[in-house]
Amino acid sequence: MTTKTSEFNYVIIGAGSAGCVLASRLTEDPAVSVCLLEAGPSDRSLFIQMPAALSFLLESDTYNWKFESEPELALHGRVLGQARGRGLGGSSSINGMVHVRGNPKDYDQWAGLGVEGWSFRDCLTFFQKMDSFEGGRDPMRGGTGPLAVTRSAAKHPFYDAFQLAGEQYGLPAADDYNTGEQKGVHVTQATIRDVKRCSTAVTYLHPAMARPKVHGLEHLRIVDGCMIPKIP
């Protein structure tokens, strides 16, 4: 018999990218119970799983909060759309799946300003822990992490011509732009596994949901479609 828990050690508000990871990490301890609240729906929709359905998600009121910027003075008062994910996985369930770690110089600049532990070398340990790169583990990439990272499998003569044109212009050919050097032309890397989107809900939350219960007690409850007007 499974007993429904009414009290939890932790309540996480928002099952976006951070919320999914946090729920997963906390419930690695079988003695910890977590309630994860999300305003949007689950991520079971085929449109979320299918990378080619990206444009549908961005136009959807169900999966996109559709925030807008303030009027931009430099753009003659135009208001710009700001897509943000609504549902399990948050924006990782509606984004373009392009995987870019960021420029190492930015991280090193933060460290130089006194932000301890945020140099690129410091963060590399966590990048590798997260990565499951199709090229396998090496000094810069991870090979067994939860997040699948693959090179784009799309093929077209225009892609080859574009890359060749860049090289002829003098740009370096970057085999892996996530190893530190981003200048050049390269094939895009994406968070896709087995032709399906690899969101944080897929990589962190779903495995946490599958963990066995201890003494019949649930240690992770997910409540989607949950709007909270006030925290008492």
Rank of each mutant, 00 (worst) to 15 (best):
L147V: 13
A148K: 13
A39C: 03
C35N: 06
E68G: 05
S132E: 10
D176I: 03
Y169P: 01
D43N: 10
S55L: 04
L164A: 12
R137K: 14
A111N: 08
D122K: 15
A161K: 11
F120G: 02
L80T: 04
S91T: 09
H156V: 03
R44G: 13
W118T: 15
V149T: 06
E68T: 09
Q82K: 06
V100Y: 03
G136E: 01
L36E: 01
G145L: 00
D131M: 04
S60E: 05
P51Q: 05
F162E: 00
G143R: 05
T125G: 14
E28D: 11
E116G: 14
E167W: 11
Y159H: 07
G142E: 02
A74M: 14
G136Q: 01
A83I: 03
L46I: 07
F67G: 10
L36H: 03
Y63N: 10
W110L: 06
F162S: 02
K105E: 15
D61S: 02
S42T: 10
T150P: 01
R78Y: 09
L147Q: 05
L73K: 09
S45F: 09
C123K: 13
M97Y: 02
Y107K: 12
N95Y: 04
N95R: 08
A31L: 15
S152I: 04
L37K: 00
R44M: 09
W65M: 08
S152G: 10
F47D: 10
W118K: 14
D43A: 07
E68H: 10
D43R: 00
P51W: 03
V79W: 07
V100P: 00
D131T: 06
L113E: 02
P172A: 01
E134W: 05
K105N: 13
S45H: 12
S42H: 12
V149L: 08
N95P: 04
A174M: 11
A111P: 08
R101S: 04
L80G: 02
A31T: 13
D43F: 04
L37S: 00
A111G: 07
D176Y: 06
D160N: 04
L171I: 02
Y169K: 08
A83D: 10
H156F: 02
S45I: 09
T125E: 14
Y107Q: 12
G81E: 14
L58M: 10
N95E: 01
E72V: 15
P104W: 08
P71E: 11
V149I: 07
Q49G: 14
K105P: 09
G114V: 15
D122W: 15
D160V: 04
L58I: 11
S93Q: 15
S119C: 13
L36W: 03
A74T: 07
G112P: 13
R78K: 11
D106Q: 07
Q109F: 14
A74N: 11
F133Q: 09
